[in-house]
Design a binder for these strands. Structure first.
Ligand SMILES: [Mn+2]
Ligand SMILES: [Mn+2]
Ligand SMILES: [Zn+2]
Ligand SMILES: [Zn+2]
Lengths: 146, 146
DNA sequence: GACTTGATGATAACGAATATCAATATCAAA
DNA sequence: TTTGATATTGATATTCGTTATCATCAAGTC
């Protein structure tokens, strides 16, 4: 199902209304395959339409997360970012602590091991987040000898 | 090396001073094997000594982290917590999203797999955090049939 | 003991997330 | 199409944990 259709179904299902602002915000978000903060998305949307408020962007992102279209990414810098989720494979992040550049990582084996651990403790897994911090190849250049 | 000794060596090494307040705060922290927020530690220290300020507790916790005695734990609820690190094995967390109860988990295999992934991308690992959220046995009781 | 300068405590500033509220838009029903 | 109940909106206030400020105080050196 198309992401936009899924969102509109979510709205109807919740008794929420389809508005010009939500439409614009969702369209812009879906077009960008990036990790966006509320402020960043607000700035982008604002370029097209001066009549969209920050609060509405924040509220719409929350709805997008609820609807399963995006998920919150939190690298611990005090800013929530949002990334596409619907139609995207689960992944974790490997982040450079120098420049912030990150890559998305995935390992079937890793995921399986995690599930085992969870079961072993009698928990039922809902979701997880693995953030690995390190130095990227570019930032590590010429640092071989410490 | 004793944790307290390590901390004092850290202070000297940094040209920092050993004070009555730092002593008290570190003593209390080291005695408690828990995940503590600044506010929580402040409240506990305050019971013994009314003359310790919140800012000093916050600053001392930062020093404790710098010195390697503790590390920051962030479950994404907007509050930094601190846990013992020195003399403690690395571990990750499995957290109940209903009641907040958590267990500390560790898997050698999991850690190895992560290292492999990091290497594969040319990064140099510094640290990582894996938080798994789910429902604990107690909260999941009677919920087998959905 | 005096001096240099780091440390302290009270509180202000900060910043992102969230709440508030009067005005407005949606949309189902008439 | 018009109406009316109410969800939505934008501007802004509030919240709350973290961090900065600064006058006063104390640790450590001589
Ligand atoms: Mn991602
Ligand atoms: Mn722990
Ligand atoms: Zn880098
Ligand atoms: Zn629980």
């Amino acid at each position: 199902m198309d992401a936009k259709v899924k969102f509109n179904k979510f709205l109807i299902n919740k008794g929420l209304r389809q508005t010009k602002q939500r439409d614009e915000i969702v369209n812009v978000f879906l077009r960008l395959e990036r990790h966006l903060s509320t402020q960043e998305l607000f700035d982008i949307v604002r370029k097209k339409d001066k009549d969209v408020g920050y609060a509405t962007v924040a509220r719409t992102l929350k709805l997008l997360a609820e609807s399963g279209l995006c998920r919150v990414v939190d690298f611990g810098d005090g800013v929530q970012r949002f990334e596409h989720k619907y139609g995207h494979e689960h992944h974790d992040h490997l982040i450079c602590s120098k420049c912030g550049k990150f890559v998305e990582i995935y390992s079937k084996k890793l995921e399986k091991l995690q599930e085992e651990l969870v079961r072993k403790h009698g928990y039922t897994q809902e979701y997880h987040k693995l953030d690995i911090f390190g130095i990227c190849p570019r930032c590590g250049k010429g640092k071989q000898v410490v």
